[in-house]
């Protein structure tokens, strides 16, 4: 089976600085792949490069099509939804308006209505808070909103940038449980960026470890988990 996303020799950066020095990785349809790495390794940059949010070079193939020359707006149109770091919610708008914006590209009214139901079932808290300004939601609720907004696209690939960032352990567990449910129910593929390796490796089936813009370890989650370096530096046992 061919990969849904395949990245070859991706370099990326901002202005003069080069952050990624030739990254290679793949993601299969329906799979969850984790990208691990320390602060500043270039994880966020990887996701931004995929979406055309930063300067990049290399070969990015999504569903058999080259997307490395597309702007962000067009990448989204292929069904790639990005939950950016910092969540990127529209703070001055209500939760519901945020979700409506997530469905901006959708033309099937019934499907959208159905998806509103679906995300409210996945995140009941959002239903309670739907007419509240997103900026006033708690951090956890904002993260849920960001994920829900991405789901409103009915994406084929979900890019998640540190969904655990700054949240209490219980909330993190809840979000990760929901992510697994989403993956099982809709078969959406996920590219998950995390610093918290334990969490990510539990959810993902494949993992890549990135250090200063290069992949240093890759493989199935179980293998990666067993790796000595990973154990010592990222899992802490």
């Amino acid at each position: 089976m061919g990969a849904l996303l395949s990245v070859k020799n991706l370099t990326a950066g901002y202005g003069e600085t080069v952050v990624l020095h030739g990254l290679n990785f793949e993601l299969r349809e329906g799979g969850i792949t984790a990208i691990l790495g320390a602060n500043g390794a270039g994880k966020t940059t990887t996701l931004r490069a995929l979406c055309g949010l930063c300067r990049r070079r290399g070969e990015i193939e999504f569903d058999g099509k080259r997307i490395d020359n597309l702007v962000a707006e067009d990448v989204v149109r292929l069904g790639v939804a990005h939950v950016p770091d910092g969540r990127g919610t529209f703070a001055a708008m209500t939760a519901e308006e945020n979700l409506r914006l997530g469905a901006y590209l959708r033309r099937d009214r019934d499907g959208v209505a159905q998806d509103f139901e679906n995300v409210y079932t996945l995140f009941p808290r959002l239903k309670e808070r739907r007419s509240q300004q997103a900026g006033t939601l708690s951090g956890g609720e904002q993260q849920m909103l960001a994920i829900a907004r991405a789901l409103m696209l009915r994406p084929r690939l979900l890019l998640l940038d540190e969904p655990s960032f700054g949240l209490a352990p219980l909330i993190v567990q809840e979000i990760y449980r929901t992510l697994r449910t989403i993956n099982q129910q809709t078969n959406v593929s996920m590219l998950l960026v995390e610093q918290n390796a334990t969490l990510a490796l539990d959810l993902a089936d494949h993992a890549y470890l990135v250090e200063t813009g290069r992949v240093v370890i890759s493989g199935e989650s179980e293998t990666v988990k067993a790796d000595e370096t990973i154990r010592r530096s990222y899992l802490g046992y």
Partner: peptide
């Protein structure tokens, strides 16, 4: 939807691009 998109752009252009708004 168009009005909503215009407000979105005013508030956060990057997030707007990420939901597909030109």
């Amino acid at each position: 939807t168009l009005g909503l998109a215009m407000r979105a752009v005013a508030e956060n252009p990057i997030s707007s691009r990420l939901v597909g708004i030109r």
